[in-house]
Protein backbone atom coordinates (compact mmCIF):
# COMPACT_ATOMS: atom_id res chain seq x y z
CA UNK A 1 0.00 0.00 0.00
CA UNK A 2 1.24 3.44 -0.91
CA UNK A 3 2.00 5.96 1.76
CA UNK A 4 1.37 9.63 1.26
CA UNK A 5 5.14 10.24 1.19
CA UNK A 6 5.56 7.82 -1.73
CA UNK A 7 3.87 10.24 -4.10
CA UNK A 8 5.54 13.52 -4.88
CA UNK A 9 3.29 16.26 -3.56
CA UNK A 10 3.65 18.30 -6.72
CA UNK A 11 2.34 15.35 -8.73
CA UNK A 12 -0.78 15.14 -6.63
CA UNK A 13 -3.64 16.90 -8.41
CA UNK A 14 -5.13 18.36 -5.25
CA UNK A 15 -1.89 19.66 -3.76
CA UNK A 16 -2.03 23.16 -5.18
CA UNK A 17 -5.73 23.40 -4.42
CA UNK A 18 -5.19 22.38 -0.81
CA UNK A 19 -2.58 25.14 -0.61
CA UNK A 20 -5.08 27.54 -2.10
CA UNK A 21 -7.68 26.42 0.44
CA UNK A 22 -5.28 27.07 3.27
CA UNK A 23 -4.14 30.47 2.05
CA UNK A 24 -6.71 32.46 0.19
CA UNK A 25 -10.27 31.48 0.79
CA UNK A 26 -13.14 33.09 2.70
CA UNK A 27 -12.45 36.61 1.52
CA UNK A 28 -15.92 37.51 2.83
CA UNK A 29 -15.94 35.15 5.80
CA UNK A 30 -17.26 36.04 9.24
CA UNK A 31 -14.30 37.85 10.79
CA UNK A 32 -15.85 40.85 12.50
CA UNK A 33 -15.50 41.98 16.10
CA UNK A 34 -17.99 44.81 16.22
CA UNK A 35 -21.68 43.92 16.26
CA UNK A 36 -22.52 47.11 14.40
CA UNK A 37 -20.62 45.77 11.38
CA UNK A 38 -22.71 42.61 11.24
CA UNK A 39 -25.56 43.79 9.02
CA UNK A 40 -23.25 45.32 6.44
CA UNK A 41 -21.13 42.15 6.34
CA UNK A 42 -24.21 40.01 5.97
CA UNK A 43 -25.76 42.13 3.23
CA UNK A 44 -22.56 42.15 1.20
CA UNK A 45 -22.11 38.40 1.48
CA UNK A 46 -25.77 37.87 0.70
CA UNK A 47 -25.40 39.85 -2.52
CA UNK A 48 -22.36 37.81 -3.47
CA UNK A 49 -24.11 34.55 -2.61
CA UNK A 50 -27.07 35.31 -4.83
CA UNK A 51 -24.63 36.12 -7.61
CA UNK A 52 -22.65 32.87 -7.33
CA UNK A 53 -25.83 30.86 -6.90
CA UNK A 54 -26.63 32.03 -10.42
CA UNK A 55 -29.06 34.80 -9.59
CA UNK A 56 -32.81 34.52 -9.18
CA UNK A 57 -35.39 34.33 -11.95
CA UNK A 58 -38.12 36.76 -12.87
CA UNK A 59 -40.91 37.00 -10.28
CA UNK A 60 -44.16 35.73 -11.74
CA UNK A 61 -47.61 35.19 -10.25
CA UNK A 62 -47.82 32.12 -8.02
CA UNK A 63 -51.12 30.84 -9.52
CA UNK A 64 -51.56 28.30 -6.71
CA UNK A 65 -53.89 25.34 -7.19
CA UNK A 66 -55.08 22.76 -4.69
CA UNK A 67 -55.17 19.39 -6.43
CA UNK A 68 -56.20 17.14 -3.57
CA UNK A 69 -57.65 17.57 -0.09
CA UNK A 70 -57.57 14.79 2.47
CA UNK A 71 -58.63 14.88 6.13
CA UNK A 72 -56.90 12.96 8.89
CA UNK A 73 -57.51 12.88 12.65
CA UNK A 74 -55.43 15.92 13.55
CA UNK A 75 -54.64 17.56 10.24
CA UNK A 76 -55.57 18.17 6.63
CA UNK A 77 -53.20 17.24 3.84
CA UNK A 78 -53.46 19.18 0.60
CA UNK A 79 -51.58 18.43 -2.56
CA UNK A 80 -50.85 21.75 -4.25
CA UNK A 81 -48.92 23.16 -7.17
CA UNK A 82 -47.66 26.68 -7.75
CA UNK A 83 -45.54 28.54 -10.26
CA UNK A 84 -42.05 29.23 -8.99
CA UNK A 85 -40.51 30.75 -12.11
CA UNK A 86 -41.09 30.72 -15.85
CA UNK A 87 -41.31 27.07 -16.91
CA UNK A 88 -41.04 25.86 -13.31
CA UNK A 89 -44.03 24.46 -11.42
CA UNK A 90 -43.56 23.13 -7.91
CA UNK A 91 -45.71 20.29 -6.54
CA UNK A 92 -45.94 20.26 -2.76
CA UNK A 93 -47.88 18.89 0.16
CA UNK A 94 -49.35 21.32 2.63
CA UNK A 95 -50.23 20.01 6.09
CA UNK A 96 -52.71 22.10 8.07
CA UNK A 97 -53.54 21.42 11.73
CA UNK A 98 -57.26 20.96 12.46
CA UNK A 99 -59.12 22.98 15.06
CA UNK A 100 -57.08 26.14 14.89
CA UNK A 101 -58.80 29.36 15.85
CA UNK A 102 -55.94 31.79 15.52
CA UNK A 103 -53.08 32.28 13.12
CA UNK A 104 -50.34 29.72 13.49
CA UNK A 105 -46.71 29.48 12.37
CA UNK A 106 -45.78 28.15 8.94
CA UNK A 107 -42.79 25.90 8.30
CA UNK A 108 -41.02 24.92 5.09
CA UNK A 109 -39.84 21.29 5.44
CA UNK A 110 -37.22 20.09 2.98
CA UNK A 111 -36.40 16.46 2.22
CA UNK A 112 -32.97 15.09 1.37
CA UNK A 113 -31.94 12.47 -1.17
CA UNK A 114 -34.59 9.81 -1.42
CA UNK A 115 -38.04 9.75 -2.96
CA UNK A 116 -38.95 13.35 -2.35
CA UNK A 117 -41.79 14.99 -0.48
CA UNK A 118 -43.73 11.75 0.19
CA UNK A 119 -41.20 10.56 2.76
CA UNK A 120 -41.78 13.67 4.87
CA UNK A 121 -45.58 13.44 5.05
CA UNK A 122 -46.18 9.74 5.72
CA UNK A 123 -46.57 8.38 2.22
CA UNK A 124 -44.71 5.52 0.60
CA UNK A 125 -42.80 6.24 -2.59
CA UNK A 126 -45.76 5.06 -4.68
CA UNK A 127 -48.19 7.35 -2.86
CA UNK A 128 -49.71 4.75 -0.53
CA UNK A 129 -50.44 5.96 2.98
CA UNK A 130 -48.15 4.85 5.74
CA UNK A 131 -47.96 5.71 9.42
CA UNK A 132 -44.59 4.09 10.09
CA UNK A 133 -41.59 6.27 9.32
CA UNK A 134 -39.41 5.05 6.49
CA UNK A 135 -35.76 5.77 5.93
CA UNK A 136 -33.79 8.56 7.57
CA UNK A 137 -36.28 11.42 7.60
CA UNK A 138 -38.66 10.24 10.31
CA UNK A 139 -42.00 11.63 9.00
CA UNK A 140 -40.89 15.08 10.15
CA UNK A 141 -43.67 16.93 8.37
CA UNK A 142 -46.22 15.03 10.44
CA UNK A 143 -44.32 15.68 13.65
CA UNK A 144 -44.49 19.43 12.97
CA UNK A 145 -48.16 19.61 11.96
CA UNK A 146 -49.00 17.62 15.09
CA UNK A 147 -47.45 20.48 17.06
CA UNK A 148 -49.90 22.94 15.59
CA UNK A 149 -47.94 24.46 12.73
CA UNK A 150 -48.74 24.60 9.01
CA UNK A 151 -46.12 22.77 6.96
CA UNK A 152 -45.29 23.04 3.28
CA UNK A 153 -43.28 20.20 1.79
CA UNK A 154 -42.20 20.85 -1.80
CA UNK A 155 -40.41 18.35 -4.02
CA UNK A 156 -36.93 19.81 -4.33
CA UNK A 157 -35.94 20.10 -7.99
CA UNK A 158 -34.44 16.82 -9.17
CA UNK A 159 -36.56 14.63 -6.85
CA UNK A 160 -40.02 13.04 -6.65
CA UNK A 161 -42.27 14.36 -9.37
CA UNK A 162 -39.58 16.81 -10.48
CA UNK A 163 -37.35 14.36 -12.33
CA UNK A 164 -36.60 13.68 -15.98
CA UNK A 165 -38.67 10.94 -17.60
CA UNK A 166 -35.84 8.39 -17.80
CA UNK A 167 -35.09 8.83 -14.10
CA UNK A 168 -38.75 8.35 -13.16
CA UNK A 169 -38.77 5.17 -15.26
CA UNK A 170 -35.78 3.84 -13.32
CA UNK A 171 -37.66 3.67 -10.02
CA UNK A 172 -38.65 5.81 -7.09
CA UNK A 173 -35.29 6.36 -5.48
CA UNK A 174 -33.56 7.93 -8.45
CA UNK A 175 -32.94 11.63 -8.95
CA UNK A 176 -32.02 13.98 -11.76
CA UNK A 177 -29.38 15.85 -9.78
CA UNK A 178 -26.40 15.01 -11.97
CA UNK A 179 -27.77 16.19 -15.27
CA UNK A 180 -29.48 19.11 -13.61
CA UNK A 181 -26.21 20.19 -11.99
CA UNK A 182 -24.24 19.99 -15.23
CA UNK A 183 -26.85 21.87 -17.25
CA UNK A 184 -27.12 24.50 -14.58
CA UNK A 185 -23.37 25.02 -14.26
CA UNK A 186 -22.76 25.48 -17.96
CA UNK A 187 -25.56 28.00 -18.06
CA UNK A 188 -24.26 29.93 -15.07
CA UNK A 189 -26.94 28.62 -12.73
CA UNK A 190 -26.72 26.28 -9.72
CA UNK A 191 -29.04 23.60 -8.36
CA UNK A 192 -28.79 25.30 -4.98
CA UNK A 193 -29.86 28.62 -6.46
CA UNK A 194 -32.92 26.99 -8.03
CA UNK A 195 -33.78 25.21 -4.78
CA UNK A 196 -33.42 28.35 -2.67
CA UNK A 197 -35.75 30.21 -5.02
CA UNK A 198 -38.33 27.43 -4.67
CA UNK A 199 -38.13 27.83 -0.88
CA UNK A 200 -38.74 31.56 -1.21
CA UNK A 201 -41.75 30.79 -3.38
CA UNK A 202 -42.94 28.18 -0.88
CA UNK A 203 -42.89 30.95 1.72
CA UNK A 204 -44.93 33.07 -0.69
CA UNK A 205 -47.42 30.22 -0.74
CA UNK A 206 -47.47 29.91 3.06
CA UNK A 207 -47.89 33.63 3.63
CA UNK A 208 -50.89 33.65 1.27
CA UNK A 209 -52.70 31.16 3.47
CA UNK A 210 -55.26 32.81 5.78
CA UNK A 211 -54.33 30.72 8.84
CA UNK A 212 -50.58 31.39 8.68
CA UNK A 213 -48.96 34.15 10.70
CA UNK A 214 -46.55 35.74 8.23
CA UNK A 215 -44.20 36.83 11.00
CA UNK A 216 -43.71 33.28 12.22
CA UNK A 217 -42.07 31.33 9.41
CA UNK A 218 -39.60 28.53 10.04
CA UNK A 219 -37.47 26.32 7.84
CA UNK A 220 -36.20 22.80 8.52
CA UNK A 221 -34.31 20.43 6.24
CA UNK A 222 -32.33 17.23 6.34
CA UNK A 223 -29.19 16.51 4.32
CA UNK A 224 -29.55 18.24 0.94
CA UNK A 225 -32.70 19.76 2.42
CA UNK A 226 -30.44 20.99 5.22
CA UNK A 227 -28.21 22.57 2.60
CA UNK A 228 -31.14 24.38 1.03
CA UNK A 229 -32.33 25.42 4.49
CA UNK A 230 -28.92 26.92 5.24
CA UNK A 231 -28.75 29.01 2.08
CA UNK A 232 -32.42 30.00 2.09
CA UNK A 233 -32.25 31.08 5.73
CA UNK A 234 -29.15 33.16 5.05
CA UNK A 235 -30.90 34.92 2.18
CA UNK A 236 -34.63 35.18 2.95
CA UNK A 237 -35.26 37.37 6.02
CA UNK A 238 -38.81 36.07 6.32
CA UNK A 239 -37.40 32.84 7.79
CA UNK A 240 -37.33 33.40 11.55
CA UNK A 241 -36.39 30.01 13.02
CA UNK A 242 -34.09 27.42 11.47
CA UNK A 243 -33.26 23.72 11.90
CA UNK A 244 -30.43 22.25 9.84
CA UNK A 245 -30.12 18.48 10.12
CA UNK A 246 -27.29 16.22 8.90
CA UNK A 247 -25.54 18.90 6.87
CA UNK A 248 -23.66 21.63 8.73
CA UNK A 249 -19.95 20.94 8.34
CA UNK A 250 -17.11 22.38 6.31
CA UNK A 251 -17.23 22.10 2.53
CA UNK A 252 -13.68 20.82 2.73
CA UNK A 253 -14.42 17.87 5.03
CA UNK A 254 -17.79 16.94 3.59
CA UNK A 255 -18.46 17.49 -0.09
CA UNK A 256 -14.76 17.81 -1.01
CA UNK A 257 -13.66 14.76 0.97
CA UNK A 258 -16.51 12.26 0.69
CA UNK A 259 -18.33 11.23 -2.46
CA UNK A 260 -21.41 13.42 -2.65
CA UNK A 261 -24.16 14.16 -5.11
CA UNK A 262 -23.37 16.63 -7.88
CA UNK A 263 -26.15 18.93 -6.68
CA UNK A 264 -23.95 20.07 -3.76
CA UNK A 265 -21.32 21.99 -5.69
CA UNK A 266 -21.49 25.75 -5.97
CA UNK A 267 -18.70 27.03 -8.22
CA UNK A 268 -16.40 29.54 -6.58
CA UNK A 269 -18.07 29.58 -3.18
CA UNK A 270 -14.91 28.92 -1.16
CA UNK A 271 -13.34 32.10 -2.52
CA UNK A 272 -15.86 33.96 -0.39
CA UNK A 273 -17.10 31.75 2.41
CA UNK A 274 -16.91 28.36 4.09
CA UNK A 275 -20.16 26.68 5.03
CA UNK A 276 -20.06 28.00 8.58
CA UNK A 277 -19.76 31.60 7.37
CA UNK A 278 -23.13 31.18 5.68
CA UNK A 279 -24.55 29.79 8.90
CA UNK A 280 -23.20 32.88 10.69
CA UNK A 281 -25.45 34.99 8.47
CA UNK A 282 -28.48 33.38 10.15
CA UNK A 283 -27.52 34.92 13.52
CA UNK A 284 -29.21 36.05 15.70
CA UNK A 285 -32.23 34.00 14.62
CA UNK A 286 -32.84 30.75 16.54
CA UNK A 287 -30.79 28.06 14.84
CA UNK A 288 -30.65 24.39 15.82
CA UNK A 289 -28.03 22.15 14.26
CA UNK A 290 -28.42 18.35 14.30
CA UNK A 291 -25.40 16.09 13.80
CA UNK A 292 -25.16 12.32 14.14
CA UNK A 293 -21.83 11.26 15.56
CA UNK A 294 -21.65 8.39 13.07
CA UNK A 295 -22.58 10.47 10.02
CA UNK A 296 -19.72 9.50 7.73
CA UNK A 297 -20.64 11.87 4.92
CA UNK A 298 -20.77 14.93 7.17
CA UNK A 299 -18.11 13.95 9.73
CA UNK A 300 -18.71 14.96 13.32
CA UNK A 301 -15.20 16.36 13.82
CA UNK A 302 -15.78 18.97 11.12
CA UNK A 303 -19.34 19.52 12.33
CA UNK A 304 -17.83 20.46 15.70
CA UNK A 305 -15.42 22.89 14.07
CA UNK A 306 -18.22 24.47 12.05
CA UNK A 307 -20.38 24.81 15.14
CA UNK A 308 -17.64 26.65 17.03
CA UNK A 309 -17.40 29.15 14.17
CA UNK A 310 -21.15 29.72 14.15
CA UNK A 311 -21.08 30.21 17.90
CA UNK A 312 -18.81 33.23 17.42
CA UNK A 313 -21.52 35.05 15.48
CA UNK A 314 -24.17 34.32 18.11
CA UNK A 315 -21.79 35.42 20.81
CA UNK A 316 -21.03 38.67 19.03
CA UNK A 317 -24.73 39.42 18.74
CA UNK A 318 -25.37 38.31 22.34
CA UNK A 319 -27.77 35.63 21.17
CA UNK A 320 -26.09 32.50 22.44
CA UNK A 321 -29.38 31.19 23.80
CA UNK A 322 -30.68 31.08 20.23
CA UNK A 323 -28.09 28.59 19.04
CA UNK A 324 -28.19 24.92 20.00
CA UNK A 325 -27.14 21.49 18.82
CA UNK A 326 -28.57 18.01 18.88
CA UNK A 327 -25.64 15.62 18.86
CA UNK A 328 -26.84 12.06 18.76
CA UNK A 329 -25.60 8.50 18.43
CA UNK A 330 -26.59 7.86 14.88
CA UNK A 331 -25.78 8.03 11.24
CA UNK A 332 -26.91 10.34 8.49
CA UNK A 333 -30.45 10.98 9.66
CA UNK A 334 -32.87 13.37 11.29
CA UNK A 335 -32.98 13.10 15.08
CA UNK A 336 -35.93 15.29 16.03
CA UNK A 337 -35.10 15.09 19.75
CA UNK A 338 -34.88 18.86 19.96
CA UNK A 339 -35.97 20.02 16.52
CA UNK A 340 -39.75 20.02 16.79
CA UNK A 341 -39.80 21.65 20.18
CA UNK A 342 -37.27 24.18 18.90
CA UNK A 343 -39.64 25.25 16.14
CA UNK A 344 -42.58 25.31 18.55
CA UNK A 345 -40.69 27.25 21.19
CA UNK A 346 -39.36 30.02 18.99
CA UNK A 347 -42.16 30.43 16.44
Amino acid sequence: MLKKSDVKNEFRPLYSLEKLYNSSIRSMGFEIDDPSDFTQWKEELKKKLIEILGGFPELIPLEPQVLEHKEFNNYIREKVVFKSAPYIDVPAYVLIPKNINKRVPGVVALHGHGYGKNDVVGLWEDGEERSVPDGYEGNFGLEIVNRGMVVIVPDQIGFGERREIEDIQNGYNTNSCRKLAFWAQLLGKTVMGMRVWDVMRSIDYLTNLPMVDNERIGCIGISSGGATTLFASAIDERIKVVVISAYLNTFKDSILSVRHCECNYIPGILKYAEMYDIACMIAPKPLLIESGIRDHIFPIEAANIAYEHVKRAYKLLKAEDKLDRDIFEGRHRLSGCKAYDWLKRWL
Partner: peptide, 10 residues
Protein backbone atom coordinates in the same frame (compact mmCIF):
# COMPACT_ATOMS: atom_id res chain seq x y z
CA UNK B 1 -31.92 -3.77 31.05
CA UNK B 2 -33.65 -2.39 27.96
CA UNK B 3 -33.59 1.06 26.38
CA UNK B 4 -35.56 2.47 23.49
CA UNK B 5 -34.02 5.58 21.92
CA UNK B 6 -35.42 7.75 19.12
CA UNK B 7 -37.74 4.89 18.30
CA UNK B 8 -41.10 5.26 16.64
CA UNK B 9 -43.90 3.40 18.43
CA UNK B 10 -47.33 2.66 17.03
Amino acid sequence: HAAFIRTWMD
